[in-house]
Amino acid sequence: MTNEKKQELDALCLKFRRTLIEILHEKQTGHPGGSLSVCEILTNLYFNDANISPENINDRSRDKIILCKGHAAPMLYIELAHKGFFPVEELHTLRDINSRLQGHPCSKETPGVEASTGPLGAGYPLALGVALADMHDDIDAYTYAILGDGEINEGVVWETAMNASKFKADKLITILDWNGVQLDGTTEQIMPMGDIELKWKAFGYNTIVCDGHDVAALSAAIETAKSVKGVPSIILAKTVKGKGVSFMEGKNTWHGAPVKDADYEQAMKELGGAQ
């Protein structure tokens, strides 16, 4: 990735974080922690690596992005709006009655949303199904599945992993938003998963560990994933829950807490002051 591109994506990430805090403060509902941790992962995909846009959305040969951790919907909506799938102003209707922007993504209602996710784990086999259908029809496209690290407590994730491995789903690129925190506490406290990389390896995956807040590192990891044939790849992206807002970082309490006035002032100051 060129320095220029990196700067461009970093600037977008800062803008999206500010928008997120603004919207969640305005609405007094929605999930800040996981939205902030997945920001670079989504931004690199939508604005760099994945071939997807409002123009090619109905073309099967495009890439697909499936946000399995559906509670990060606010960040997904911000990406989609800035990508041109719907007006940016519509972001202010998040979670409103009659809004297309549901609390968790709805594929029927919201342009650009690939799958209705929210029930954790459920999106992952769907992503595999999309990848397998493309592989069957020799469509040269990638399906990106983004999992949370709390989400991988779900048994269906490992059922899917076995199937991805069995069916040699090398067009499925999984990215784990590895922030170490879930709703009730740290992943260590709630459900210690042991050696996560070893677990995925044991399920037959090619594993790549990278800094999940470094867009260049994420993009390089995707390149590596694409070069490995015959097995599925997972990018274990090390992230920080609540990334960018000091008092939210690493705190499970910010999984779904409302952003109060004082939080808003402080967060916006940290994200570049009044602009």
Partner: peptide
């Protein structure tokens, strides 16, 4: 055989995989 997926004893994942295939225009 190329249109048959034995998913093992993974009923939940099987249903999800079918959803992805249906989304891609297949009749699962």
């Amino acid at each position: 055989p190329d249109r048959f997926y034995n998913c093992g004893i993974c009923e939940y994942a099987m249903m999800g995989m079918a959803a992805g295939m249906a989304k891609s225009g297949k009749i699962p």
